[in-house]
Amino acid sequence: MKINVMTDVLEANDRIAAGNREVFDRHKNLVLNLMSSPGAGKTTLLERTAEALQGKLRLGIIAGDIETTRDKERLDKYDLPVVQLNTGSACHLDANMISSALPHIDLASVDVLVIENVGNLVCPAEFKVGEDFKIMILSVTEGDEKPLKYPLMFRESSLLLVNKIDLLKYTNFGLKEAKANARKINPGIEIIDISCITGEGIAEWTAWLSGCYQKKFGTNSRA
């Protein structure tokens, strides 16, 4: 006999993600799922962001990594709530892993929670974790054709940060081509050029964050 099912394969994950989202909303957290290749600059971006947001919005971080607590050690000096999740061999974070991390972070003391996903341009795009927005970093040393090779992540992201633009002159990366490729996949994507070394674009990025927080909660900060 044939039995109709019509159930989403990731339904169990999406249900937990919706539960996480309720917890975040209750604690007035703007939540971003930050994705990129390994080495694109996720942790460095968070270091610059922690500095730039001081006295404005309070940052909290859940950092996913396959092994080690190095990311947490780098971020600990900013005196932020940081939880490190080791995924073992898993190449992405899912809603259940985030749910299990929530008791270890004081969400009431956080305005902007960044979930730093595992470095990977494929699987993280598939799994909702309860975020308001997916955002991603593409660094100029990776190549301008990446949006065409990994369309789902570029399609799912609301914001693309093009990082390491201080290195542009040493690479054959076409900034225009990269943006055109990203917009081909996702015409609505916002794009900001940044360098975590020179600080270029960081103010624009934190203004984007503040704008999102303002839109979600109708205030600049609860402080």
Binding site: M1, I3, V5, L10
Partner: peptide, 11 residues
């Protein structure tokens, strides 16, 4: 973009 179990055949 779907990823869905449509139906099953069982006995």
């Amino acid at each position: 973009t779907e990823l869905r179990v449509r139906d099953i055949e069982a006995e």
